[in-house]
């Protein structure tokens, strides 16, 4: 089918265009990190209490930190070209392995949070748009404002107090029951129980954004001529709202959701900390504190790749949602 071939062509083009972008991002990040004072050896030495000049030198030698900056950059890029993200001085593990441990859980949590946010946000936004100016709209608008303005950690703590401490329904932190290996469906259910609270507290902020955006987009579409045509055809209000108003309002929502997917990856440190969730946000934070630049560069590279991938997917989704935008 020519449609599929076009999609494949567009994806291939995105991939090719991504290469120079990613290299640029890596080099920029590398130099930005060089601006920070201190290196991994300083931090290791500081944590062990004391170190001699010789130990420091040995540490730097071991991690390749004694070379000039440009040589270090060359070494890093050379590693990348051989699909190696380098070695973490702090964790004593290859960076790829470190990220590999955290990535699936993080991706799952992000997708779940974004999914919840989109679903709830669009439903609330539709309700607000249908009852625009009336009581349900007013109440939900205030609620959205609350979600939007209350900090994530506070919502997280309150959810823990309610659902873990008082009701005892859900675990208060972690990513799975420790010490047991539950097989099959029960294992999935166990993991899901650990994800509900962090995903919800992450989602609430985005729920507010999507609800308000959906409301605004739907009200905008509602005033368009083709909605009047739909009414003149004698369609029911439900059918008009779903097929004509909401369908057209989805176009701006997908744009925003794509942008959020990229930014969520790095922006979940607070929620991960509150729920002691082993995610990439915390790993990145610890890498900054430990001056573990290899890990940090790896995470930044990964998130830039994810942003590019998310953009490509959103572009494709847009052509599907809006036939006026052709796949090229």
């Amino acid at each position: 089918m020519s449609g599929l071939r076009k999609v494949a062509g567009s994806l291939r083009r995105t991939a090719v265009q991504a290469v120079p972008t990613v290299i640029g991002i890596v080099i920029l990040n590398f130099f930005l990190l060089q601006l920070a004072p201190g290196d991994a050896a300083d931090v290791l030495a500081g944590e062990s209490g004391a170190a001699t000049e010789e130990t420091m030198h040995a540490l730097r030698e071991q991690f390749g930190l004694n070379h000039p900056v440009l040589v270090q950059l060359y070494n890093y890029l050379n590693g990348l070209a051989h699909f190696s993200l380098g070695f973490s001085p702090r964790y004593g593990l290859p960076v790829a392995e470190l990220i590999g441990q955290r990535l699936p859980g993080t991706l799952l949590l992000m997708s779940l949070a974004l999914g919840i946010a989109l679903l709830v946000g669009i439903v609330l936004g539709s309700v607000m748009a249908i009852f625009a100016g009336r009581l349900p709209d007013r109440v939900l608008s205030i609620l959205a404002l609350v979600f939007y303005s209350v900090p994530g950690f506070w919502i997280g703590l309150m959810l823990i107090i309610l659902f873990s401490v008082h009701l005892g329904w859900l675990p208060s932190g972690g990513a799975g029951t420790i010490g047991v290996d539950i097989p099959g469906f029960a294992g999935l259910l166990d993991k899901a129980r650990y994800m509900v609270l962090p995903a919800t507290s992450l989602a609430l902020f985005y729920v507010a954004i999507y609800a308000r955006l959906t409301r605004a987009a739907m009200l905008e579409v509602k005033s368009q001529d083709f909605v009047r045509t739909a009414r003149a055809k004698g369609l029911s209000p439900t059918s008009i709202t779903i097929h004509h108003v909401l369908r057209n309002a989805l176009i701006p929502i997908t744009t925003l959701a794509g942008m959020h997917f990229g930014s969520m990856l790095g922006g979940a440190v607070v929620v991960e900390t509150v729920y002691s969730w082993p995610g990439l946000g915390r790993l990145a934070y610890e890498a900054v504190m430990g001056r573990d630049y290899n890990v940090l560069l790896g995470i930044l590279l990964l998130s830039s790749l994810l942003v590019i991938a998310a953009n490509a997917i959103v572009d494709l989704l847009q052509t599907f949602l809006d036939p006026r935008i052709g796949v090229r």
Binding site: T229, R231, A232, K233, G234, H243, N248, L321
Partner: peptide
Amino acid sequence: RGSTAAMIFQEPMTSLNPVH
């Protein structure tokens, strides 16, 4: 609407839903 009385409008460009 649509069965006893039907209506067409001035702007054929905007009176049809662009996504269907």
